[in-house]
Nucleic acid binder design. Structure first.
Lengths: 215, 215
DNA sequence: TTTTATCGACAGACAGTCGGTCTATTAAGG
DNA sequence: CCTTAATAGACCGACTGTCTGTCGATAAAA
């Protein structure tokens, strides 16, 4: 029954990940985690100093997964700027095959704290990545703004809040109506002609459930 | 010691308001509230069905205070559009003399859930109010956008996230640098000439602590 | 032998419940 | 008009079950 610390740690994180996703952070007791992993209380507190510590470790994992994939794509200068933006954004949905589940976890109303912490990761981590691409685009004459970072920050903040979040309760039609408006606004922010970023529609999936995440 | 239900309810809410502000929602026990009000457990659960129910009632209060003031100003067509926008926004800081304290409460990291719930009130409640003013401005030829609502939504989402929140940790200089960039972006969104909205700087207070809230 | 991982009993705190009490008001009876 | 009984709303506090985090003991590995 004895294992390497790192292995145990990951077992615990895996269990917590699933349980938090099902029942939320507050709704999950440490006993639930103990049972699922098959260890005793003391063991859990040997590996983690508190329940919140487990959540923080989980967020670190997400952080690495989500931003790692985005960073990889952003650095690949062989891809054209427009295409790269789309791919970076879309990578957030599917990085490691579970980005989407992560996002779904977070949206349980019970998980306000975890949600907040992940939002923080994204709002701080994503704009720098996107800004670099935008700067390239500016050099190539594709975009025109004196404030690329703040533009990206605004866009990410918006999509996080309105599209990724349950902050605004949108029907499918309302959501669909927001998309061209959003693209129009992005065009203005980036100083390009109206209609020239319409190709970005594809970031929002084909409808249904895919479009939950796009920041 | 016997009181009208509504009076007791408000006593409890007042106490909870202060305690949540000091120690956060999770950090405040129902016993703390009991002590502060000077009532017994049963009494509290006679008036509220759960601890979270107390928070929800508190948020209703905030909601009324915050949006009520904003609505009042927005409806006053005797004030010029530009000025009215500034006043609506600034009213959020000081409505009822305690808007600022409300905002400060919410920013305690312990209060993630309350924070989220108030953000929801703002992101859903404020854009409609502002949109009406913008529409007036469009009729007067002051602004030009086919999507006034989505513009406001974007602006509110951004200020909520970046300026009002601790999502992005800004030094004073970083904060100061964000302001002209923000105004520039708003100008683009509203389709006005660069520099013409600079008067909005005043919404961000004189620096220091005043500028915590501006959405 | 020392370090690393594990165990499970336990303490302390807390949210919510429940049966019962107290009191003001109203209704009935004298 | 006064007294007494009934009713309902406000209140009480002991109690229950649950949960988190601690600690000393123990076993396995190094």
């Amino acid at each position: 029954m004895r294992k390497e610390a790192i292995e145990r740690r990951n077992e615990i994180l895996d269990a917590a990940d699933e349980l938090f996703g099902q029942k939320g952070f507050d709704g999950t007791s440490t006993n639930d985690i103990l049972e699922k992993v098959g260890i005793a209380r003391g063991t859990l507190y040997y590996h983690f100093k508190s329940k919140e510590d487990i959540m923080d470790a989980l967020i670190d994992r997400y952080n690495t997964q989500i931003l790692g994939a985005a960073n990889g794509i952003a650095a690949d200068k062989s891809i054209a700027v427009h295409e790269r933006i789309v791919r970076v954004v879309m990578a957030l949905n599917i990085s490691g095959g579970n980005g989407k589940e992560i996002i779904d976890h977070i949206h349980k109303p019970q998980n306000a704290l975890m949600h907040q912490k992940i939002q923080k990761v994204i709002i701080n981590g994503l704009p720098p990545i996107l800004t670099e691409i935008i700067r390239e685009g500016i050099e190539q004459g594709l975009f025109s703004t004196p404030y690329p970072y703040e533009c990206m920050e605004m866009i990410v903040a918006y999509t996080n809040t309105v599209f990724d979040d349950d902050m605004v309760d949108l029907t499918d039609e309302e959501r669909a109506a927001r998309i061209p408006a959003f693209i129009f606004n992005v065009e203005r922010l980036l100083g390009v002609e109206s209609g020239s970023l319409m190709y970005m529609m594809k970031m929002f999936g084909s409808g249904g459930e895919e479009n939950r995440n796009n920041s």
